[in-house]
Design a protein around this nucleic acid. Structure first.
Lengths: 123, 123
DNA sequence: TCCGTATGTCGATTAGTCTCGACGTATGGA
DNA sequence: TCCATACGTCGAGACTAATCGACATACGGA
């Protein structure tokens, strides 16, 4: 990930409505939500919301897909990973000890179907 | 993490100089760097940098500690974890399947000293 | 083709951010 | 106490972002 793209993504998330939109779309993964429903859900005029959705889309945080008259928006989880990776220097800059505690913390919040074992979390 | 704090953090990172500062401080973990050296390293006037450091500090992304005449700044990795967690709804909102792929991806970038096993990464 | 619904674009107003010169504060040494 | 170094704060000008009314476009149905 490049600096410009990271700045775009952080700027996109640095606004209450857009942060709410992103989290709302995370909740509605993997189905997504149409633009109008997002606007209604957050009580924001449709044109204002359209601007925000455009900013989030250009930042790569969400993606749009037409379905008849509606445009369905979905969160792009890969973008979150890329952002986090960029923050800790793509990723960790050859220093695993830096993001290891970060990963351990994130892991502990949701024991996954992967074999990320209890040893990893508690040992 | 609260919405206000997340907005502060994202806004802090949505600026080229500040993003560079944060990544520079990640590189210099766990020793940190004095304010003046950060300013010189990124070729920014000291007062401009002071403002940026204040914004990053208020956002909880870095922390300051006096050492004689210098003030040493250090990155707060816990903040990155909290931010990521907040993004995926504190964390995953009871839906592990959402952030599992995210964690798997992050894990694959740095095989850690923990027992996050090869099965988790490749199997 | 005409209408209604769903969404995007434009433009002006308002509000917030970035930068940096000038000045203020804190620490350590002579 | 006086000076130099290391930082922080203030304030003004230049720039950027947020909002929303008005208008434009796209699709589906009659």
């Amino acid at each position: 990930m490049e600096s410009k793209q990271a700045i775009l993504a952080f700027a996109a998330l640095a606004q209450p409505t857009r942060l709410d939109v992103f989290r709302l779309l995370i909740e509605h993964e993997p189905d997504g939500l149409p633009a109008g429903e997002i606007a209604r859900h957050l009580a924001v005029p449709h044109n204002t919301m359209s601007t925000h959705l455009g900013i989030l889309t250009r930042a790569g945080l969400i993606a749009a897909e037409r379905h008849s008259r509606s445009i369905i928006f979905r969160a792009q989880l890969e973008a979150v990973r890329a952002l986090t990776g960029y923050l800790v220097k793509d990723c960790c800059g050859g220093r695993p000890e830096i993001c290891a505690p970060l990963i351990a913390d994130l892991t502990s919040c949701c024991p996954t179907q992967n074999t990320i074992t209890k040893e990893a979390v508690h040992g």
